[in-house]
Design a protein around this nucleic acid. Structure first.
Lengths: 672, 672
DNA sequence: AGCATAAATAATAA
DNA sequence: TTATTATTTATGCT
């Protein structure tokens, strides 16, 4: 009678190159943090268990977060991003956050940061973009924050100018920005920082985008709060997440002010996988020459929808002069993209089967083509920071103009954080800082894009050139050094991935759906950018992103070239800027309706929640019991019979099935 | 780059008396094991973290697996399940696994266990069902395995007969079954263990059902692989999962052999939510008197679909004599349900908001009406074990006949594990064994059901009576002690929930959809059990299960009475047995098409959407990367490897290519 | 204040 | 292209 069954529980960890590492997760997780320097080469940095004990992979040695920071800093330095070698002291590496609210996420944080609170905090602090090094410093600060118990505070050291690479690191190390540099005087912009947009960006990530008027212009700051245990269905696991913190600083007024620096910050929690990255899109080339940095959005026109903007063409394009100042500063900024420090965070593979692990990849001033990740084929150099000037001249008009100068990696352009998978296959790509004339090919084509000039205006920040700066590898018109780069694909993939990610974050931060974006774009960009096309393009990008190095071949085979994907990027990028700008404008005018600026009517509202009568429910349930998957006819019949819309009935069944499924799942889990 | 996939392989051993043990699996999980004696009282047994350190809940003390075993053994003993007190020595408690392949999953395991491999392994080992205590021993062994570093090997100590409570524990503790007891001689059943069915059961759960011929009969073992990080969208989180392992033992040949024991074991991981449940439907009353226990499925007819079976009526009903032996044995089996030890496993609340905690509730020979869970209203006693004889006489013909004898709780009848929520509201129902005349009302109507006798044949196991035994509370004909039971609802809910869960697991393990079941049932059971009706019944049960005590009111309001659900249970149970039997038969005949035995035409509706496991997707994507156009052979291989239908795999590639193509197209559109 | 679930969104199997 | 699923959001009610 005896039955013996043996239950085995196993945890399999799949390493992305099909290397599988088995981890044991104690309580919850184990997490393995890897920093990826330039190339796909990954540097395992951290491997901790819940107890907080961390050890580098394959090594008994334990590393603390600070160690990690040092390591990072070292990497940066070696990459030429830092002026001087990082000090080995933990705090040293960390610089005060510049122009960024420092998120302070408490490990034991009970909930998400309330966005309202964020806003309130935001009003208190202001960020000014000092200059060159601030970006790096911010980065450093971010890194240093790793040491902190994962606290994210929204106060923040605004005084970026004060931040020198070596300065104020200690403060940051503490993790709370509030104690950071003295808040810079709030210059021209008397507007308090406002929440441009807020809401859930992804899975469990709450995001808020703040507009921070500064003497330099308007800075946009994105704050993402990432619940540690987000997405985990089971209770006990500690989860990790990555949060991307996007910092966008736009110069609105100060033509004189130092250019806003870009900050990229990645915070990774040990016990909990978390990533915070901030990117600041400023300073990069404006796609269209006529783009100006709108002072504070001049036009208070309430609902400036992208479409409207498109039609209204250049209404906002004034202050072209400001752009100059902006550009100049980038040059000064020391943290060149030279060593595009790709901090890869190796996550545990999610359930998603895609074998590649995603590593947060914060392209900062990753201007230098030598960026490890970037398959820089050509000999072209692109000084990311300095690019601004160069890129400035890119004519937005020349669509496929081979203008390569001041090319930035996608990320920098977006000013968004993106997570890149480490691409297993493509080996090379070390931290060839600066001068690397690696892959000229696809990487550096600067397709100004078909930027409907109309859509260009309003871009408030110096970020304008960003679109132009992109190294879009256009298959056609292989401008510079493009022939020999076969690494390009890999690079493209990275870029695409990053872009897609960044775009998504930005889109979400505006509270827009893919559909909305598509619709708006179709209006703005014309038929070629029909909604579906855009959406699909986005999807494609996402999709493409999935394939990292390893799959490039297939990619080509299927004719799904990253190149084409790359082409659409500028358009999307441009639109996004406009949308964000518009958003800001509306804010100013007091009209803060997120959906207003979309070319879509607000009509879109959510349908009123239907409430079914008990009788209806009875019938529906009876039907459901008989058949959980009623045919269309059945549904129609029911709808008619009950007097509800067919769709309502259909959805009812969908939800009912879902509920059932959930129930079952729980039960099984529960099992008792 | 890191991929982490966690696969949990669990083998559940169902102790036939509904003993559930929650284990902590070191490596990865934390388990909390609770033994629940009769009533819902739960006894926390284990709580370990990956380090292998275990401590009883609320206690700093660490327990080793062996401790757990001891504890368990002690519990069992106290419950009267063991003949002698368990020794305190760690190894002692563990007995060699009986009749079960012991899965050995290495923590560093690279991928999921290949089902093929499992099958191969299965062929190596054989399980023989010794006698009474073997079940317990097996359990103990299983528990002991907890100590192992989470290795799951599919080799396994088969020599169950040799297993005495105190013997061979050490070997098991090692975690590898291969070194376990000497493989018992493979008696009559010369068939190697085979995979009855395999595939994705749910979300990311892969399941394989093995048939293990033993001298006692055929044992079915279900192995579920649960990716740790399943369902997690972010990479890094380690996830939890629950695995349910169903063990069904059917006596095929040995009329003389001791009756198969049912083992119910629940493994629950703390850190990772895992559930393993096994249910064994054997030994219970046959609904229709003419049912016999088919020897080894006599009819090798390839596709013995339920429908066919229905039409063919009693083709397989031979060996009626065997049933006798089966029944007799239950009596002899020491582990009577007396102390229907409910091992409740308390899991961490999952993210799902449902506030009720689910406690694993494994009804084993919960024959005694006194079972805490059961709201035994009437004074009727039902000796679950002994019931067989009694129930045997139930006439399947009398649908609503008030025949109460040998009533079993649903679970026991099913021999399935089900998860019950603890119902807050209904207080009473202590382990008022036997005599409690609590809620006579709805609880005890024994609607024999309209069991179309035709459908009865083929039920291989002695389980036949199970259907009859059910205490279906039919609103009409309140037979015995039924008036005063208001607790009934709570009880019913428990049962319903349990049943629904068990049924679903079994259904899924056969790869059947509700629709399929419904269709098959409509054929088998007649119009009253039309497809839709069945499905709805299932759904209703599921649905009903959702509501635990708190929501009963609503339940009633919606007219989703547990009672009605209860009525259909026996039918479903019976059908499931047949289906499983049929499955086996087909297997024997070499026709292993999962869908074959369903009485449903394939012509029907769109196939249910498959959901691939992350692991499967990983593999598929890897293949896709290499080759977007795999040959038929490749596809077949993949399908086999992954346990999906070939067509599903083929379609996956089609869709994948399509997606790629779309992506490309859009991108190109985009720009140019 | 929370819960149950209708509605909406995104992904993807068929 | 369609239909379903999987998730998420947020409404309406207690």
């Amino acid at each position: 009678m005896a039955w013996v069954s043996v239950c085995l529980f196993t945890t399999l960890f799949f390493l992305h190159a099909f290397l599988t590492a088995a981890l044991h997760m104690s309580h919850i997780l184990h997490f393995r943090l890897k920093l990826q320097a330039h190339s796909r080469k990954t540097i395992p940095v951290y491997d901790c268990d819940r107890d907080g004990e961390c050890s580098p992979p394959g090594s008994p040695q334990h590393m603390t977060a600070s160690h990690l920071n040092d390591r990072l800093a070292g990497g940066l330095f070696s990459a030429g991003l830092l002026d001087r070698p990082p000090s080995s002291e933990h705090a040293k590496a960390a610089a005060a956050a510049a122009a960024v609210a420092q998120a302070h996420l408490n490990g034991t944080m009970q909930g998400m940061l309330n966005l309202q609170k964020l806003q309130n905090l935001a009003t208190i602090q202001h960020a000014s973009m000092p200059s060159s090094l601030s970006g790096l410093q911010g980065l450093a600060a971010g890194l240093s924050s790793l040491n902190s118990p994962l606290n994210l505070s929204v106060g923040a050291g605004a005084g970026n100018a004060a931040m020198t690479p070596g300065g104020g690191s200690a403060a940051n190390a503490g993790g709370s920005a509030s104690d950071g540099g003295a808040p810079p005087p709030i210059p021209s912009a008397q507007l308090p920082q406002l929440i441009l947009a807020s809401g859930q960006l992804m899975q469990g990530i709450q995001g808020a985008q703040l507009l921070i008027p500064t003497s330099q212009g308007i800075a946009t700051q994105t704050i993402l709060t990432i619940p540690v245990s987000q997405q985990v269905h089971s209770n006990e696991q500690l989860v990790q997440h990555l949060a991307a913190l996007t910092n966008g600083t736009s110069n609105l007024n100060g033509p004189v002010a130092p250019p806003p620096a870009m900050l990229n910050r990645h915070l990774l929690s040990n016990g909990v996988q978390q990533l915070l990255s901030a990117v600041q899109p400023n300073m990069f080339g404006a796609t269209s020459p006529h783009q100006s940095m709108p002072h504070a959005p001049v036009t208070p026109s309430a609902s400036v929808s992208p479409r409207r903007m498109a039609s209204a063409s250049p209404p906002h394009s004034h202050h072209a002069a400001t752009s100059r100042s902006l550009h100049s500063s980038p040059k000064a900024s020391p943290p060149r993209a030279t060593a595009s420090s790709h901090h890869q965070y190796e996550k545990m593979p999610t359930t998603t089967a895609t074998a590649t692990s995603q590593s947060p990849h914060s392209p900062l001033y990753s201007a230098s083509p030598s960026n490890g990740h970037v398959g820089s084929c050509g000999s072209q150099q692109m000084a990311s920071v300095s690019q601004n000037q160069t890129s400035m001249h890119h004519s937005s008009t020349s669509r496929h103009s081979p203008i390569p100068p001041a090319m930035n990696r996608l990320s920098s352009q977006n000013g968004e954080i993106t997570i890149t998978k480490s691409h297993g296959p493509s080996p090379s790509h070390s931290s060839s800082t600066g001068s690397g004339s690696n892959h000229p090919s696809s990487q550096h084509n600067v397709p100004p894009m078909k930027l409907s000039p109309s859509s260009m205006h309003l871009s408030p920040t110096g970020t304008d050139n960003s679109t132009t700066d992109f190294l879009a590898d256009s298959p056609n018109e292989p401008t510079i050094n493009q022939a020999t780069c076969n690494v390009v694909d890999g690079i493209d993939l990275d870029e695409i991935k990053e872009f897609a990610k960044a775009f998504k974050l930005r889109r979400l931060s505006l509270g827009l759906t893919q559909t909305q974006v598509g619709q708006a774009l179709s209006v703005t960009e014309g038929p070629a950018y029909s909604q579906s096309a855009i959406c699909s393009a986005l999807a494609a990008q996402m999709y493409a992103a999935q394939f990292s190095t390893q799959q490039q071949a297939m990619f080509e085979k299927l004719d799904i070239t990253p190149k084409s994907a790359q082409k659409i990027k500028p358009v999307l990028e441009r639109w996004m800027k406009e949308a964000e700008e518009s958003h800001w404008n509306r804010y100013k005018s007091g009209q803060n309706h997120l959906t207003d600026f979309i070319g879509v009517e607000p009509s879109k509202k959510r349908k009123r929640r239907t409430s079914f009568t008990p009788q209806a429910l009875e019938l529906l349930n009876a039907h459901f019991e008989r058949n959980t998957h009623p045919s269309g006819t059945e549904i129609t019949g029911l709808a008619h019979q009950l007097g509800y819309e067919r769709e309502v009935i259909r959805i009812w069944f969908c939800n009912k099935r879902q509920a059932l499924k959930n129930t079952v799942r729980m039960m099984s889990k529960g099992i008792v």
